[in-house]
Design a protein around this nucleic acid. Structure first.
Length: 166
DNA sequence: ATAAAGGCCACCC
DNA sequence: GGGTGGCCTTTAT
Protein backbone atom coordinates (compact mmCIF):
# COMPACT_ATOMS: atom_id res chain seq x y z
CA UNK A 1 0.00 0.00 0.00
CA UNK A 2 1.37 3.37 -0.99
CA UNK A 3 0.21 6.78 0.04
CA UNK A 4 0.27 9.88 -2.04
CA UNK A 5 3.57 11.36 -3.06
CA UNK A 6 4.16 14.95 -1.99
CA UNK A 7 1.59 17.04 -3.85
CA UNK A 8 0.94 20.45 -2.39
CA UNK A 9 3.96 22.78 -2.61
CA UNK A 10 6.68 20.14 -2.89
CA UNK A 11 9.95 21.66 -1.72
CA UNK A 12 13.43 20.71 -0.63
CA UNK A 13 16.60 22.30 0.65
CA UNK A 14 19.87 21.87 2.50
CA UNK A 15 21.01 22.94 5.95
CA UNK A 16 23.75 22.08 8.39
CA UNK A 17 23.16 19.82 11.42
CA UNK A 18 25.32 18.40 14.20
CA UNK A 19 25.81 15.40 11.91
CA UNK A 20 26.70 17.17 8.70
CA UNK A 21 24.66 18.78 5.99
CA UNK A 22 21.21 17.29 5.50
CA UNK A 23 18.68 17.43 2.71
CA UNK A 24 15.02 17.71 3.64
CA UNK A 25 12.14 17.28 1.20
CA UNK A 26 8.65 18.29 2.25
CA UNK A 27 5.22 19.44 1.17
CA UNK A 28 2.14 20.77 2.93
CA UNK A 29 1.58 17.17 4.01
CA UNK A 30 4.82 17.06 5.98
CA UNK A 31 8.42 15.96 5.61
CA UNK A 32 8.82 13.05 3.21
CA UNK A 33 12.62 12.74 3.24
CA UNK A 34 15.56 13.61 5.45
CA UNK A 35 18.93 12.40 4.22
CA UNK A 36 22.62 13.03 4.81
CA UNK A 37 23.88 12.90 1.22
CA UNK A 38 27.51 12.68 0.22
CA UNK A 39 26.97 15.42 -2.33
CA UNK A 40 24.18 17.65 -3.56
CA UNK A 41 24.19 15.80 -6.85
CA UNK A 42 23.58 12.62 -4.90
CA UNK A 43 20.68 14.27 -3.12
CA UNK A 44 19.10 15.35 -6.39
CA UNK A 45 19.50 11.86 -7.83
CA UNK A 46 17.95 10.31 -4.75
CA UNK A 47 14.96 12.64 -4.81
CA UNK A 48 14.44 12.10 -8.50
CA UNK A 49 14.66 8.38 -8.01
CA UNK A 50 12.11 8.28 -5.23
CA UNK A 51 9.69 10.90 -6.53
CA UNK A 52 10.14 10.85 -10.31
CA UNK A 53 6.94 12.78 -10.93
CA UNK A 54 7.46 15.52 -8.41
CA UNK A 55 9.04 18.85 -9.19
CA UNK A 56 10.49 20.18 -5.94
CA UNK A 57 11.19 23.88 -5.48
CA UNK A 58 14.31 24.74 -3.52
CA UNK A 59 13.72 26.49 -0.21
CA UNK A 60 16.82 26.45 1.98
CA UNK A 61 15.40 29.06 4.31
CA UNK A 62 12.47 26.83 5.30
CA UNK A 63 14.79 23.86 5.74
CA UNK A 64 17.03 25.93 8.02
CA UNK A 65 14.01 26.59 10.21
CA UNK A 66 13.14 22.89 10.24
CA UNK A 67 16.67 22.10 11.32
CA UNK A 68 16.59 24.58 14.20
CA UNK A 69 13.26 23.17 15.30
CA UNK A 70 14.57 19.61 15.17
CA UNK A 71 18.11 19.87 16.51
CA UNK A 72 17.87 22.91 18.81
CA UNK A 73 14.35 22.72 20.19
CA UNK A 74 14.10 18.96 19.98
CA UNK A 75 10.72 19.00 18.27
CA UNK A 76 9.44 16.82 15.46
CA UNK A 77 7.62 18.50 12.58
CA UNK A 78 4.76 16.78 10.77
CA UNK A 79 6.01 13.70 8.91
CA UNK A 80 4.79 12.14 5.69
CA UNK A 81 6.73 8.91 5.23
CA UNK A 82 5.87 6.84 2.18
CA UNK A 83 6.10 3.06 2.23
CA UNK A 84 4.30 -0.26 2.47
CA UNK A 85 2.03 -1.05 5.36
CA UNK A 86 4.70 -3.28 6.87
CA UNK A 87 7.30 -0.53 6.64
CA UNK A 88 4.96 2.08 8.08
CA UNK A 89 4.16 -0.07 11.10
CA UNK A 90 7.86 -0.42 11.80
CA UNK A 91 8.66 3.25 11.28
CA UNK A 92 5.80 4.03 13.64
CA UNK A 93 7.24 1.70 16.27
CA UNK A 94 10.61 3.41 15.99
CA UNK A 95 9.04 6.74 16.87
CA UNK A 96 7.91 5.26 20.17
CA UNK A 97 11.48 4.61 21.33
CA UNK A 98 12.27 7.34 23.86
CA UNK A 99 15.22 9.57 23.12
CA UNK A 100 18.36 8.26 24.78
CA UNK A 101 17.15 4.65 24.74
CA UNK A 102 17.69 1.78 22.33
CA UNK A 103 15.83 -1.33 21.24
CA UNK A 104 16.93 -4.43 19.36
CA UNK A 105 15.71 -5.45 15.91
CA UNK A 106 14.04 -8.42 17.60
CA UNK A 107 12.20 -6.15 20.04
CA UNK A 108 10.82 -4.10 17.17
CA UNK A 109 9.65 -7.28 15.45
CA UNK A 110 7.94 -8.25 18.69
CA UNK A 111 6.39 -4.78 19.05
CA UNK A 112 4.62 -4.95 15.70
CA UNK A 113 3.38 -8.47 16.40
CA UNK A 114 5.66 -10.19 13.87
CA UNK A 115 8.28 -11.86 16.08
CA UNK A 116 9.54 -14.08 13.26
CA UNK A 117 10.08 -11.26 10.79
CA UNK A 118 13.26 -9.99 12.39
CA UNK A 119 15.27 -10.00 9.23
CA UNK A 120 12.57 -8.20 7.26
CA UNK A 121 12.44 -5.67 10.08
CA UNK A 122 16.12 -4.94 9.55
CA UNK A 123 15.52 -4.43 5.85
CA UNK A 124 12.57 -2.12 6.49
CA UNK A 125 14.52 -0.08 9.01
CA UNK A 126 17.26 0.28 6.43
CA UNK A 127 14.68 1.77 4.09
CA UNK A 128 13.75 4.53 6.56
CA UNK A 129 13.20 7.64 4.42
CA UNK A 130 13.38 10.21 7.24
CA UNK A 131 16.67 9.89 9.07
CA UNK A 132 16.86 10.98 12.71
CA UNK A 133 13.17 11.95 13.03
CA UNK A 134 12.30 8.31 12.52
CA UNK A 135 15.03 7.17 14.89
CA UNK A 136 16.37 4.10 13.18
CA UNK A 137 19.71 4.87 14.86
CA UNK A 138 18.21 3.69 18.16
CA UNK A 139 17.98 0.10 16.98
CA UNK A 140 20.87 -2.27 17.66
CA UNK A 141 21.55 -5.97 17.52
CA UNK A 142 20.51 -8.49 20.16
CA UNK A 143 24.15 -9.48 20.65
CA UNK A 144 25.04 -5.89 21.52
CA UNK A 145 26.52 -5.02 18.13
CA UNK A 146 25.57 -1.71 16.56
CA UNK A 147 23.98 -3.31 13.52
CA UNK A 148 24.01 -1.28 10.32
CA UNK A 149 23.35 2.30 9.36
CA UNK A 150 22.67 3.82 5.99
CA UNK A 151 24.80 6.88 6.72
CA UNK A 152 27.71 5.01 8.28
CA UNK A 153 28.20 3.42 11.69
CA UNK A 154 30.24 6.40 12.83
CA UNK A 155 27.20 8.62 12.31
CA UNK A 156 25.01 6.15 14.21
CA UNK A 157 27.39 6.29 17.16
CA UNK A 158 27.45 10.09 17.09
CA UNK A 159 23.68 10.33 17.11
CA UNK A 160 23.37 7.97 20.05
CA UNK A 161 25.98 9.76 22.11
CA UNK A 162 24.53 13.18 21.21
CA UNK A 163 21.12 12.05 22.43
CA UNK A 164 22.41 10.49 25.62
CA UNK A 165 23.79 13.82 26.84
CA UNK A 166 20.90 16.21 26.30
C1' DA B 1 6.17 -15.61 -11.30
C1' DT B 2 10.43 -16.24 -9.52
C1' DA B 3 14.93 -15.24 -7.84
C1' DA B 4 18.16 -12.71 -5.03
C1' DA B 5 19.32 -9.75 -1.69
C1' DG B 6 19.12 -7.80 2.71
C1' DG B 7 21.06 -2.72 8.89
C1' DC B 8 18.89 -10.31 11.86
C1' DC B 9 19.17 -14.29 15.08
C1' DA B 10 20.11 -18.83 17.15
C1' DC B 11 23.08 -22.35 16.91
C1' DC B 12 27.19 -24.75 15.89
C1' DC B 13 32.38 -25.15 15.73
C1' DG C 1 35.87 -15.21 16.31
C1' DG C 2 33.65 -17.33 11.97
C1' DG C 3 30.10 -20.09 9.19
C1' DT C 4 25.11 -22.08 8.32
C1' DG C 5 20.28 -22.31 7.98
C1' DG C 6 15.90 -20.33 8.71
C1' DC C 7 12.96 -16.44 8.62
C1' DC C 8 10.23 -12.60 5.99
C1' DT C 9 9.74 -8.52 2.83
C1' DT C 10 11.10 -5.97 -1.27
C1' DT C 11 13.00 -5.29 -5.73
C1' DA C 12 14.67 -6.70 -9.92
C1' DT C 13 14.44 -9.97 -13.45
Amino acid sequence: MRQLPPQSNPSFGFANTPFGECCIAFSDDGICALTFPESREGAYADLDNRFPQTDFKQNDERVARFVRQIFEKGESPLLNPIGTEFQLSIWHALQRIPKGETRTYAQIAEAIGRPKAVRAVGTAIGANPIAFLIPCHRVIRTDGGLGGFRWGLECKREMLSWESKS
